[in-house]
Design a protein around this nucleic acid. Structure first.
Length: 593
RNA sequence: GCGCCCGUAGCUCAGUUGGAUAGAGCAACGGCCUUCUAAGCCGUAGGUCGCAGGUUCGAGCCCUGCCGGGCGUGCCA
């Protein structure tokens, strides 16, 4: 509908150009917006004001010329010039009523479009290190990322959802070593668990699996393991006066594990930890309604030689240099704050090196657009990744990094804190168990992603209209309930298409509802292109409110069959849009509550 | 210190890329069930858009400088 009116404006502009009253080489895209105030009509454009200077005319005069040049349309009831030169469009009632048969005919597809057709987009999100279960911070990235991906798909993009698995690197070694140490404890060894080790219960569980399946097969004397290690930093309850280095300590433990177990056995423990946790993450996300097309292994980049290849390309183009035994990328040449190491003094390539190779690979795969969704704490990382891509001669315009701020949980007005290392954190799974998948998803995407999210657990769990999820779902269930009542009374809905009977929808509440239903495709498009799922939640609350208000003001199952049919068609359309919108969010639309 | 993000009603947040008189939801106060689900609806009250300049027909939105909060500033990932 919005597009139809834009076309009319374009035609009017073209008319003025043809008459020589306007000198334009190419027509501008007219800005058309929904009015905030009904006295300003339904849509308003400011083209006359924008073009006034160029046309050397007063805005209002130009507006009048445009209005005169406007082709006739059944959509438009009348047009007014207002204020400094706005052109206000008042739509006919038919224009609004027409949406009902359109919704009923297109059903699930109402709101979907093809504006992204032919374009491939990759969305990478969550990508949490498989060193422990997902926590509630990852949950927001999961909800946000999956909804953005689904929105893009809804407007026609070919979407590729991807999880980057950090299955290499030091953090994973720390996990493997943590598992092994817990296993040694289960074998009866007494040892001092390192400050930097992973302490969660899940580590014990993985260790127990190892112990159950292999008995003492991986056992080594604790004294041997801890012999000649650099001292750890003191932990609670230990004398604080002896300084230590927890990083050197854990690195020593990793080296000891590798040496004492040998390659094969070390690898086995490492893989057991990785796979157990990755399986858990996969299951967790699947239960949360998040599916991926691909789980991309970081290790595969090293094994395929992609990392070395990327480093080679950077070296060949003169962007690398050696210093202090390490290999550095001169990212400052591309606006980064400082240069970055790609190969460490010890010969190991850094996470950053993998990430250069990974992003180069993404662009090579030919996506028109690549979207990374990261936690906000990684924002400092953006300049160096873009710098590397620039250095490789890649088009950084194709890469968008969206940052998701933290979610802070509140329970009973108190903050519920989390920390992966201590093992005291709220997992995504726990959150789902507490508030349910629907509430969790809805709440996660309710706010703009760059806004800190205060997640009120009590509210998310409450079964009242204060809870926006229930409020919207209830509107959906309520329509279904009315239709059940109608069926019980033997009333049917006229299946004929078109706006038959709909001219009976004259009540103010009905006009408002029709207006809101009309707006839905624009909301989906905007939410998708701007990666702003909160526009959908916002819209659904409005639509639900329009419906509830209507429900309270008017009876649907009236004796007048024609009026009744019109009203049932209207609320049927409303239910369809509620269902479509909730579907985009991955939230269920219950038939009864 | 430097970089990025945020600052809008008592609270949580919108604000259609610079448009007309800044909007919701909670909380507060006052109403609405003999009715298709009161898990709902209506009304009242609530604002120096952090502060100060600037850009222009027009600024919550853009620019500059302050103030306040978050995050980052590893040869970790």
């Amino acid at each position: 509908m919005k597009q139809d009116i834009k076309d009319l404006i374009r035609a009017a502009l073209q008319g003025l150009v043809n008459q020589g009253q306007l000198d334009l080489i190419e027509l501008p895209e007219p800005q058309l917006e929904r009015t905030k105030d009904a006295t300003h009509g339904d849509f308003a454009t400011n083209v006359a004001m924008v073009l006034a200077k160029l046309a050397r005319a007063k805005p209002r005069d130009l507006a009048q010329q445009l209005v005169d040049a406007l082709p006739a349309s059944p959509l438009i009831a009348r047009v007014e010039i207002a204020g400094p030169g706005f052109i206000n469009f008042f739509l006919t009632e038919d224009a609004y009523r027409e949406v009902v048969p359109r919704i009923l005919e297109t059903g699930h597809d109402y709101g979907r479009s093809r504006i992204g057709a032919g374009q491939r987009v990759q969305v990478e999100f969550v990508s949490a290190n498989p060193t422990g279960p997902l926590h509630v911070g990852h949950g927001r990235g999961a909800a946000y990322g999956s909804v953005v991906a689904d929105l893009l798909a809804a407007v026609g993009f070919d979407v590729h959802r991807e999880y980057y698995v950090n299955d290499a690197g030091r953090q994973m070694d720390i996990l493997g070593t943590s598992v092994w140490l817990r296993y040694l404890e289960l074998c009866g060894e007494t040892l001092r668990f390192p400050s930097n080790g992973y302490r969660g219960d899940y580590v014990w569980e993985i260790a127990a699996t190892l112990h159950r399946e292999h008995g003492d097969g991986y056992r080594v004397d604790a004294e041997t393991v801890f012999a000649d290690l650099p001292p750890d930093t003191p932990q609670q309850g230990e004398p604080q006066d002896q300084p230590g280095d927890k990083e050197a300590h854990i690195d020593g433990l990793i080296a000891a594990a590798k040496h004492l177990l040998g390659d094969n056995r070390y690898r086995y423990v490492f893989e057991l930890g990785l796979n157990t946790i990755l399986d858990d993450i996969r299951a967790d996300l699947a239960e949360f309604g998040v599916e991926y097309q691909e789980w991309y292994s970081e290790r595969s980049l090293t094994e395929s030689g992609a990392v070395n290849k990327a480093i080679g390309r950077l070296r060949a183009s003169g962007h690398l240099y050696e210093q202090n035994g390490a290999l550095w990328f001169r990212s400052t040449a591309f606006g980064d704050e400082k240069d970055r190491v790609v190969v460490r003094e010890n010969g190991q390539s850094t996470y950053f090196a993998s990430d250069i190779a990974y992003h180069a690979d993404k662009l090579e795969r030919g996506f028109n657009r690549v979207i990374d969704i990261w936690g906000a704490d990684h924002h400092g990382y953006i300049p160096r990744v873009k710098a590397a891509l620039q250095a490789l001669g890649d088009d950084t315009e194709r890469l968008d990094v969206l940052l998701v701020q933290f979610a802070i949980l509140y329970r009973g007005g108190e903050k519920a804190q989390m920390s992966t290392r201590s093992g005291e954190f709220v997992t995504l799974r726990e959150l789902r168990q507490e508030v349910g998948r629907d509430a969790a998803r809805f709440f996660y995407v309710m706010r703009r992603c760059e806004q800190h999210l205060d997640f009120d657990l009590d509210l998310a769990r409450s079964e009242s209209s204060d809870n926006p999820v229930y409020y919207v779902q209830y509107a959906h269930a309520r329509v279904s309930s009315v239709l059940r009542q109608a069926a019980d009374k033997g009333m049917t809905v006229d299946p004929s298409p078109g706006t038959v009977n709909l001219e009976r929808l004259t009540e103010n509440h009905e006009q408002i509802l029709l207006r809101t239903l009309n707006r839905y495709p624009e909301v989906v498009e905007s939410a998708a292109l701007k990666a702003e799922p909160h526009q959908i939640t916002q819209y659904l609350r409005e639509l639900a409110n329009d419906f509830h208000t209507y429900y309270n003001a008017h009876q649907f199952l009236v004796a007048d069959a024609v009026l009744r049919d019109a009203r049932l068609k209207l609320i049927l359309a409303a239910r369809q849009v509620l269902r479509n919108g909730l579907g985009l969010l991955g939230v269920s639309a219950p038939e009864s509550m």
